[in-house]
Write a protein that binds this DNA or RNA. Structure first.
Lengths: 142, 142
DNA sequence: GTATCTGCAAAACATTTGCAATTCT
DNA sequence: AGAATTGCAAATGTTTTGCAGATAC
């Protein structure tokens, strides 16, 4: 799902369409990803959603994200060691992580994507381009 | 260090040159990386080196790899979630991981590298291109 | 002899698993 | 009721930390 989702019913229909039983927790987790395009970690999702759903457990978040990823409606990013991040934008694009403030930005233009489906004889089915450095905001501040 | 290292003295000089005290363990760990271009995990390095150095501890491997990475003589790869790999080739190149056999290949040609130092206003200092799919060998087997 | 380095044990995290309770239809 | 889902507690796996002993200069 590539645009901000405004209504719960839209999410419900989308999940069902992808073969996912739309439970309350699953809808809320997907809604969170759709409306918070910050590439959150499990911990961030948990801390934020806990306020709204006090009974929510991390296990459910792990279960749900693993299910979503397996159904290919979200993507996981391992741009930083020991820190998995998630996003619900599955269109191919690159990511830039600022080493100062930690923000992860989507990079949609001006970056090279592999277009060949075979490289050095290997069949390519997935790709991730991770960039790091100092972001626009942090450069200006210093 | 980009070519296979044959002599311990060469490694010793290289480490000293990079401001690293060349202890026995550090030399052996660097030698291992230089002569095993398989992008090993800490566990692999530990299991292999243990045969030669029975008293070696994983803590020392973690300490050493973190030191090497900080001194920028090795690179860590987070191509797979929850599995850090290391290599001593710091020249820019891409990596391909086979989802069948798990092998990680270096990709030196036919892949796009970011050449601009500024993208979307962000200063880029590091990049990693991770590809996944089915490798040459596993395609042939099936 | 003083700095540094090593390695054990414990701690700190992140993620998964087993399973009983809950929810949904 | 029956099947799926949730969430607690425990297990697993990885990396870091504290610290005492060993090593090197």
């Amino acid at each position: 799902m590539d645009v901000t989702v405004r209504d719960i019913d839209g999410i419900k229909r989308y999940l069902m369409n992808e073969g996912i039983n739309p439970s309350y927790q699953r809808i809320k987790i997907f809604e969170y990803l759709a409306n918070h395009r910050i590439h959150p970690t499990v911990d961030t999702i948990y801390n934020d959603l806990c306020r709204e759903i006090p009974t929510l457990s991390k296990t459910t978040i792990y279960n749900t994200l693993n299910l979503f990823e397996q159904k290919e409606i979200i993507t996981s990013l391992s741009i930083e060691k020991n820190e998995l991040r998630y996003e619900c934008d599955t269109r191919p694009h690159a990511h830039f992580k600022c080493t100062v403030c930690g923000t992860v930005y989507d990079i949609r233009h001006e970056f090279p994507l592999v277009t060949k489906s075979v490289i050095d004889g290997h069949k390519v089915t997935e790709q991730q381009l991770y960039l790091k450095g100092i972001c626009k905001n942090c450069s200006r501040d210093s």
